[in-house]
Amino acid sequence: MTSLLDTTPVSVMDVLRGERDARPIANTTAASGLRAELEDGIFALLGPARRDAPLAIRASTLRSGTYAEDLTASLLAQVRGLLVTQALRLLSVGLEIDHAFDDALLAWRADVGSNELTRFVDQLESDERARLATDVTAHCVTLKRSLGPLSSRWLPRTSLRAYQRLAGGDVVLRDVIDLMVGTTTSDQASVALLDVTTSPLGEGAERVMRYHALVQTLRTSIVPLRTSMFSTAAGELWSANVDDELLSRAVGDVLETLRVMTVAP
């Protein structure tokens, strides 16, 4: 059956930007309360003793739900994710990507130099490499089609790192936002966060979206407008407006992850 749509399907950017008139006033007061809530929760979990090595939490830790599973992600999947992220970065500056795999690989190598993952790609058999190239190209095509126009007036920033020390450095929240648009200097909330994943979206995706919003709030002391996640595997976009409830749940996610990490052998 052929369906005819009345309107053009909305793009990822349309959803991220939303209606300009519907944006709330920027919340600049929530960060200190969230930090206090986290500090109290961490103290209840870890106690007063200082740790030799900090507990590091990343978005991938929350996605998998357990600390152990985070370490088992296949190298091939990691490389695929990294290359699709590089492609997003190139798209964000308006570069036409004709050969997604080659372009992303060149950009990635220039960025990181040589490491375990670049050596892994170098050592791939030709058929494995071809499969990876096809896979990356397919994901990039989905991304390019779905992303929509990305105006430089929206101040797109890519691969933004964040690092938050809690409990005197015993707990470290690390995060990388694949794409951020909007500004923190506006009176209205306008910052929208996007995580691009090559995996299908699942329960963990919601935790990751909340985590991005929480870390961004702690980093800038300004609550973002929206947090979103796009799967290039399914072409699916999840998006949520950031409010007090979402941030409070993010605090709960972090504390639950810490609890799992501290009881894990």
Binding site: L95, I97, D102, L106, A110, L155
Partner: peptide
């Protein structure tokens, strides 16, 4: 000497830098 994709990544990094510096300065 760099490929267009590397130059593109430089632009992306520079845009990140300029925006965060400008956000600090605008205040």
């Amino acid at each position: 000497q760099s490929s267009p994709s590397v130059v593109g990544l430089v632009s992306a990094e520079a845009a990140n830098w300029a925006t965060q510096l400008d956000e600090a300065a605008q205040e």
